[in-house]
Each structure stands twice: as C-alpha cells, then as structure tokens.
Simulated scan of single mutants.
Amino acid sequence: MLTALLYGLGTAAPLVAGAAIGLRWQLPKAVLGALMAFGAGTMIAAVSAELFEPAFHQAGAVIAALALFAGAGVYVVANHLIENKLGPRALGWALMLGTVLDGVPENTALGVSLAGSGGLVLLVAVAVGNVPEAISGAALMRDQHGFERSRALWLWAITAVALVLVTVLGNALSDNLSPTHISIVQAFAGGATIAVLADSLMPEAYREGGWWIGMATAAGFLVAFVLGG
C-alpha cells in the first residue's frame, strides 16, 4: 500500500508543479509548445508500449480495440460537450479533462502493475507527460477564462489527489481483477490518451511552437522509448 501511495504521488506531484508553473509564469510560446510536444511524444510511446500492446496480446484484438475506442469516445464526447458550453476557447478545461480521463485508467493500471513489481516505466512516462499538460492547461485556464490562480491551482490539486487515490485503490483491488479486466483498463487509457493528443495537445503545441515542434515530439518519444527498453 505504501508503494502504491508513493507511486501515486510520483504522478501527482508533477501535475501540481506543472500547474503552479503555468499559473505563475508567462512562458514564451515556443517553450510552452516544446513542452507540450515533448509530453505528447512520451505519451505516444507510453500508449503503444505500456498500455495498448500488453492489452492487445493478453485480451486479443477485439477486446483491446473496443476498449481503445471506448476510451477515445468518452473523451471526444465529453470534450465536445465542454466546447459547446464554453466555446472554442475551452482548451484549458479540455486538457484538464484529458488528464482525468487518461490519468484515472493509467493510474489504475499503475496501481495494479505494482502487484507484479512493475510499473516504474509507466510511472516515469505518466509523470513526464503530466508536467507540460498541466503547465499548458493551467496557463490556458488563466488566460482564456480569467481564473484566479488559487482557484485554478485547487482544481489541479484536487485532480492530483484523485489520481493518488486511484493508484492506491487499483493496487488494493489488484488481486480481484482478472488479466482481461486489467487489459481493458489499459486499452481504455490508451484510447483516451490518443484522443487528448489529437484533439488538444498536439494541435496547440504546433500553434504555439511553430514548424520545428515535431523535433520536440520525437525527443519525448525517444526518452520514453529508452526508459521502456
């Protein structure tokens, strides 16, 4: 249980730190774009190697695919509802939503994986991806919606606490989850992450960072891939 708590804190602390940075400083657009692109690269590697691939091999193509599309569909629908309510400048909320929708299954999978003495690579990938996502999401909430810094930070802190609790709960329930159930959680997290990348993180990274931003994405992918190698 203590290990699960520490791993949960390992994913949550970067989230709060990133939100604090995004709310406190006005980062240059190129830096913010590079951070988002780097985080996107780590997420791409984590989805393929740590989430979908094991689900595909364990549960099979049909179950893994259904869970993948379910995760993507939940995010896309929820993000569409937010945009309809808040308008096209709702990206900050969308990134927070993405953090929740991909973070909950990811942290559940992280907690479950600790039963087999694993999870370190997924921990690092999630933590690295959380930082730019929180920086950009918090900054956009401040700039586009006029959020007070304290209120926005509290929202991100609550999100972080929820992810810690999910990690601990996943670890506590690991003995009662079948390998297929674990695979469904992993593939669902992968689908939500892909939708976040396509709808929010990567388009905004390109707009902020410019034509060279693909290099930062490649760098993030390489770091996460090496960690998983």
Rank of each mutant, 00 (worst) to 15 (best):
M1P: 06
L2G: 02
L5D: 04
L5P: 00
L6T: 12
G8M: 07
L9T: 03
P14R: 11
P14T: 14
P14N: 13
V16I: 15
V16A: 15
V16T: 05
G22R: 00
G22I: 07
L23H: 08
R24Y: 10
W25N: 04
W25L: 14
W25E: 02
L27F: 05
A30C: 00
V31P: 00
L32D: 08
L32W: 05
A34S: 14
A37M: 13
A40M: 10
G41W: 12
M43N: 11
M43L: 15
I44R: 01
A45V: 06
A45I: 05
A46V: 10
V47Y: 05
S48C: 07
S48P: 01
A49Q: 12
E50A: 11
L51S: 10
E53R: 07
E53G: 01
P54D: 13
F56G: 00
Q58C: 08
V62W: 11
A64T: 06
A65S: 14
L66W: 06
L66Y: 02
L66E: 12
A67S: 12
A70R: 03
A70V: 07
A70G: 00
A72F: 05
A72R: 02
G73H: 01
G73P: 02
V74K: 02
V74N: 03
V76C: 11
H80P: 01
I82S: 04
I82W: 06
N84M: 13
L86K: 14
G87Q: 09
R89E: 14
G92Q: 06
L97W: 04
T99Q: 08
V100L: 15
V100D: 04
L101M: 11
L101E: 08
D102R: 12
G103C: 13
V104F: 12
E106M: 07
E106Q: 13
N107I: 09
T108P: 00
T108N: 02
V112A: 09
G116M: 06
G119R: 04
L120W: 09
V121T: 14
V126H: 06
G129Y: 03
N130E: 13
N130W: 09
P132G: 11
P132H: 10
A134F: 07
I135L: 12
G137E: 06
M141T: 02
M141F: 00
M141H: 04
H145K: 09
E148P: 00
R149G: 13
A152Y: 04
W156S: 02
A157I: 03
V161R: 02
V161Q: 00
V164I: 14
A172T: 12
S174G: 05
D175E: 15
N176D: 12
N176R: 15
P179S: 10
P179R: 05
P179V: 11
P179A: 09
T180R: 08
S183V: 12
A187I: 09
F188L: 13
F188Y: 00
F188N: 00
F188A: 10
A189G: 15
A189T: 05
G191L: 03
T193F: 05
I194A: 12
A195S: 11
D199E: 15
S200T: 15
E204G: 03
Y206D: 10
G210T: 11
W211H: 15
W212C: 04
W212P: 05
I213C: 08
M215R: 08
A216P: 04
A216W: 10
F221E: 06
V223R: 04
V223P: 02
V223Q: 03
F225M: 07
V226H: 00
L227P: 03
G229V: 12
